[in-house]
Amino acid sequence: MQTLTQRLANPTRFMALSARVLPWLAGLAVVLLAAGLVMALASPLDYQQGHAAKIMYVHVPTAWLSIMGYMLVAVSSFGLLVFRHPLADVSAKAAAPIGAAFTFICLVTGSLWGKPMWGAFWVWDPRLTSVLILFFLYLGLISLRSSIEDEALAGKLTAVLSIVGIVIVPVIKFSVDWNSLHQPASVMRLGAPTIHASLLWPLLVMAGGMMALFGALHLKGMRNEILRRRVKALRTVEVEASAGLARQPAE
């Protein structure tokens, strides 16, 4: 008998399952994002910032997803190193660039929002600074993977790095907050701790849409990676066969 995890771990089963789930997830993303945008545009204007504050509906969900994406990479990495789950490396590899893209959108929208609010695109706001360093961590994962030829080794080393990263991320966050707290210059902070319900609903719908989008992109990325690995395996067999190296198991 196979456990559920083992059954899902089977790439063939994953391909069949994900093919069925993907259109629904992608559809859900489109519907939620469209609804969220309409709700966001209809929401009451901020009396200080006017329309500029509406960028929040894109900025805040991407900020959440930037850290969730990193956690997804770290959990997948843990699955690879500890359980040697065959899909874990595929998941970690697919999640990293998507997470980096969401982090980048978060940085760009945050900086666009900062311009009318602070008069400068970048004022070393502690939250944005933490996100910037998270972006560097993503770049590190992607570059380490791309600079090692042996793909299996690259996957495992990147997994070690992402686990080191997830351990240090809270310390980085803490240190950046500490830095702004103990700086003589007063730094304004983005976002309000209490948020009115008329602003919260559009935000939650947008966040749901962004999550569905992340999920759909991640599934698609994983499917692409599995197909790429199959093509590679077929080519290897072809090369071996033509070189007369097709091996039989030694008895």
């Binding site: 042996d150 299996a152 590679k232 395996a233 290897t236 071996e240 091996r247 198991p249 030694a250 008895e251």
Partner: peptide, 10 residues
């Protein structure tokens, strides 16, 4: 090694 069986059931 590298997706290829080097030896098996030795």
């Amino acid at each position: 090694r590298g997706g290829r069986a080097v030896f098996s059931k030795l």
